[in-house]
Structures are given as structure tokens and as C-alpha cells.
Computed example of a mutant assay.
Amino acid sequence: MHSFRKRRFLCLIFSIILGFVVVNNSISAEDVDLRLHALAAILMDGDNGRVLWEHNGTEQRAMASTTKIMTTMIVLEYGNLEDEVEVSKRASQAPDVQLHIREGEKYRLGDLLYALMLESSNDVAIAIAEHVGGSVEEFAQMMTEKAKDVGAHNTSFKTPNGLDAEGHYSTAYDLAIIAKYALENEQFREIIRTRNKQFYELTNNRHFHVYNKNAFLDQMNGAIGVKTGFTNQAGYCFVGAVERDGKLFISVVLGSGWPYNRQYKWQDTQKIMNYALDNYEYQKVVEGKINLDPVEVIDGKVKDVPIELYGGEVGLLLNDNEVVRKDISIPEYLDAPIQDNVTVGYLSVYIDDELYTMLPIKTTESVEKIDFKFCLDIIIKKFLF
């Protein structure tokens, strides 16, 4: 038992040495008042999904045409961009904003994505949904299921274009998660950063030239998207992204004014992004290699087993006010037999007492359990040699 108490003491000392605490009297990110017009807003680290700041970030709200981020992702993942899409009567009669596609016309699916995201065409969204999902309703169900798959559990899609509908809602947090997922797709990025696009209807060669309506692309260095939106219920909405100096920030503003305040969404987004760029820097919080003492083995053919931290380096964007703590949890001893590459503990990383990640600690060797032959060999060696 003496060895156990000694090991417990050493683990405690090691945890204290490994962890570090930043002591200050500054206010936390949650207390920052950016004085936005938006009724709900969020700032997210686009690389890992960590929320850096929020205001009513999990409040359910209508989200207007920011819906079309998910519409595009469903097409990119389940559709064939070379398909011919035939326009239905329902699609041709969708309300503004319209590309004014006509019943019976045919378009290349890939071309329609540019009209969808650059000009936010509602008739195009219906045509896309019917083609890829079989119906608007089936397509909306695909959207909702995909949202849950990527971690947006508080989102329900009823339309592919974001027009107000009962049961059609999301949150600032969910939209940021969806945007993070979308920005990992290079085809999606190519579409949202395109300034203009020309294409033709396939049967009568009618010509179209669509232009990107995202003014944010010209308002901040490193702006890369993502999608605007407006309905009477949602107000002005915008999902934005900035990539600069190795940092990727995603912001969402919902209910950021109503007519005649269309500029509020840009002002709000710039405030959020400037706060992010001014206050967050990349820091390494876990080194790739950490020396760990072996763990004592009970009834093993050797007295201890080496262990190692798996997962590599951990780095993330932090501000000066955030407190980082790292705790190691490993057992005092292990009972033989022990297999190689088995998880026996964790290194837990906390940001402001919130668990950020857990890295596994695994054995690097196997240890067999002692048996009669092993004990007999020890006795023979001790008394005969």
C-alpha cells in the first residue's frame, strides 16, 4: 500500500505541474456586450466548432434563406451536378426572389446551385428539391436528418428556400455548425466565393447571368461567405465567415433588423468579426509528447507497464481571459493480464471549467499474468543459482 500512496502523490504533483491557470480580473467572453441589433447571434471557431461568444445562441428562430446552405450541401452530397433538372409548375410559381424559370424548362443541376446561393432564387430551390429529393417534403426531411448528423439538433427544415413555414426553424448555434460543415467542402466554398456566373437553359438556350449578393465579401479582408436571408418573420439574417492569419471564424446573426434596416446585418457581423480578430490567438495547450510514469501491475510478469498519450498536439484559439486546465486521470495500478494499445486513462482539457476534449492514454506493451511455471522458474533461479 505504501507504493500506492506514493503513486497517488506523484500523480497529484504531476497534474499540478501539467496544468496551468491564468489568473486575472477581466470579464469573460459571455459578459462582452457587442451592442448588436440582432436578436440572436454567435461567434464560432470554424476549425473545431467551439463557441467563442454568443447572444441567445440556442434560441429557436426563423432563419430565412440561410436555409439554402443546407440545400446546397444536400445537392453536393446526394445529387449529380450534370443532371438535367426539369422545372415543375410548383417551382415556376414560387414567390420572390426568383430566377424566373419556366415550367418545362431544363437546367444543369450544377448551374442552378449558383442561382440558389448567389441570387437566392426561391424557384430554383423548389426545382432542386423536387429533382434530388423526389418532392419538396422528402428533400426537407433529408435536410433535417443531415442537420442532426452534423450536430445541429435544434433545427427543423420544412422548405428548401427558407420561406416562413410552420415548423421551419433553427438557432444561431445550429446554423454556425451547419456552416462549419459546409465550409469543409471545397465545392461549396467555390460556389459562395464566385462573384458572377453565366449559364444557359438547355432546351431553348435562354441566357442567365447571376451575381453574388453577399456584400460582406468586400467589407472585410479574408471574408469568404456565406449566406444572407430575409423574411417577414425572420428579419435580416446572415451567416458569415472570415479566414485570416490561419484563423477561421464563423458568425451568425438572426433578426438583425427589419425594413428599412438591411445594413444592420453587415454592421453586426463586422462587430463580431472584429471582436474575434482582436481578441483570439492560436495557442498550443497540449504538446505532442508528454512523459508519463509507467503504471504498477498486480500479478504481472513485470512490475509495471509503460503508457503513452495518444492524440498528438492540441491547439485552439483563446483569448487572454480564458482559463485552461489539464487533468490526467490514470489508475494507481492495473491487474494482469494487460494488452497492448488499451486505453487506461485520459488527459482532459478544460476551458473555463468546461470540458473541451479528452485524449486517451494507452498501454504501449502487453503484460502476461504470473502462473505456476513463472513462479517455479523464479524459485529455481533464486535457490539454485
Rank of each mutant, 00 (worst) to 15 (best):
V22W: 11
E138D: 15
D111F: 02
D218E: 15
K89C: 11
E166R: 06
R61I: 10
L254I: 04
A115G: 14
A140P: 00
A38Y: 07
I378M: 10
E368F: 07
A165K: 10
L347Y: 14
K271V: 05
A125H: 02
A152C: 06
M273K: 00
H100P: 10
Q93E: 13
A241M: 08
T155R: 15
E313I: 10
F139T: 10
K89R: 13
K213D: 04
A276W: 10
D96N: 13
A91T: 14
N24E: 09
D371W: 00
D268L: 00
D352I: 12
G110H: 11
Q267R: 00
N319G: 04
F139S: 09
D245Q: 13
N185L: 06
S348G: 05
G225V: 01
E119G: 03
V297I: 08
I17A: 09
E86L: 06
D123P: 13
E54K: 07
S121Q: 09
K148R: 09
N279R: 01
I272E: 07
D299I: 02
T343Q: 13
E138R: 14
A182R: 07
K68P: 03
M273V: 07
L109G: 04
C375M: 14
Q339M: 11
D149R: 15
L10T: 06
L254R: 01
I101G: 07
E130Y: 11
M73W: 12
I178T: 08
G104W: 03
G222R: 01
V242Y: 03
I224N: 12
N261T: 09
R50G: 15
L109W: 03
I290P: 14
W266R: 06
D371V: 03
T155G: 05
D371H: 08
F199C: 00
V286T: 01
D111W: 06
E119K: 09
D353R: 02
Y211E: 13
P259A: 12
R50W: 09
R206G: 12
R50P: 05
I370T: 15
D304L: 05
F188T: 02
D377N: 05
E82I: 05
G235P: 09
H153E: 09
G240T: 05
I191L: 14
N122R: 12
F9M: 14
A115Q: 09
L12D: 06
F14L: 05
V51P: 01
I307V: 15
V51I: 14
H37G: 04
I298M: 04
L277F: 04
V21S: 13
G255N: 10
E296P: 13
E82T: 01
S348E: 07
T364R: 07
A129Y: 00
F216K: 01
L116W: 04
V349G: 00
